[in-house]
């Protein structure tokens, strides 16, 4: 069981309190109804599924109930960092060389 740092609770908490919520930084269009088929496909169906660093949404569902963002390595399963929902993609990742 992983420990995940909740950016709202400001501490690491057991994975059992959390739930994954899919890839992060996929913004819903402000003009949803006007999206082209292509853009909607990208928005709704296409996910990056990388080997390595992934940006994910998690919810501290059995804790503070907040959604937040996490950077995780799909190879090692390790969380690199977490940050609050709405914050931009971090430009630098601690401990990751690329």
């Amino acid at each position: 069981m992983l420990l995940i740092r909740c950016p709202y609770c400001e501490e690491e908490r057991p994975e059992l309190e959390f739930r994954n919520a899919g890839e992060a930084h996929i913004a819903r269009s402000a003009n949803m109804a006007g999206e082209s088929d292509h853009d909607f496909e990208k928005f709704f169906f296409i996910r990056s599924n990388p080997k390595g660093i992934i940006y994910e949404r998690w919810r501290h569902v059995h804790g503070c109930a907040r959604f937040f963002n996490a950077v995780r390595d799909t190879v090692t399963d390790k969380f690199v960092m977490t940050y609050k929902a709405g914050e931009p993609k971090p430009s630098k990742l601690p401990g990751v060389t690329k």
């Binding site: 739930r19 919520a21 819903r28 949404r57 919810r59 569902v61 109930a65 907040r66 959604f67 929902a85 709405g86």
Partner: peptide, 12 residues
Amino acid sequence: NHMEDYLQTEFP
């Protein structure tokens, strides 16, 4: 969960 998701992340 669905409602909280939209409220917190799309319509905050």
